[in-house]
Design a protein around this nucleic acid. Structure first.
Length: 99
DNA sequence: ACTTTGACCGGTC
DNA sequence: TGACCGGCCAAAG
């Protein structure tokens, strides 16, 4: 089990990510004052569907890599205008959300 | 109490 | 970017 308050904090931040923008796990972790818990953020997001409808597809790792085993994520982002490089990574330089 | 496991991160080269 | 590496920390076994 993961603490409810932690889940709420993470999801409330994810909810703020604007369309056509992406955020990294570490970035989320920092925004909730837990800069060292980026891995937990990923864990929570992996079950985000269970807690409600959140734009969890706008979260990638620091290199701009999309989540493993989730092919749809890339399409969802492209629909919002986020561009990918040949290697399959988001162009963080241009699309990372500056909160 | 100890070990392993993750949708991870920041230096450094 | 990319590869390599040591660090992080809650959870589950």
């Amino acid at each position: 089990m993961i603490k409810e308050d932690l889940i709420y904090e993470i999801l409330s931040v994810v909810e703020e990510i604007p369309e056509g923008r992406v955020a990294s796990y570490g970035q989320i972790a920092r925004l909730i004052g837990r800069d060292k818990n980026s891995r937990l953020v990923g864990k929570v997001l992996s079950m985000a569907e269970y807690y409600g409808r959140y734009p969890c597809h706008r979260v990638v790792n620091h290199a701009g890599r999309t989540a493993p085993g989730w092919r749809e994520q890339r399409l969802l982002l492209e629909d919002e205008g986020v561009e990918f490089r040949k290697n399959g990574c988001v162009d963080m330089k241009r699309f990372q959300w500056n909160a």
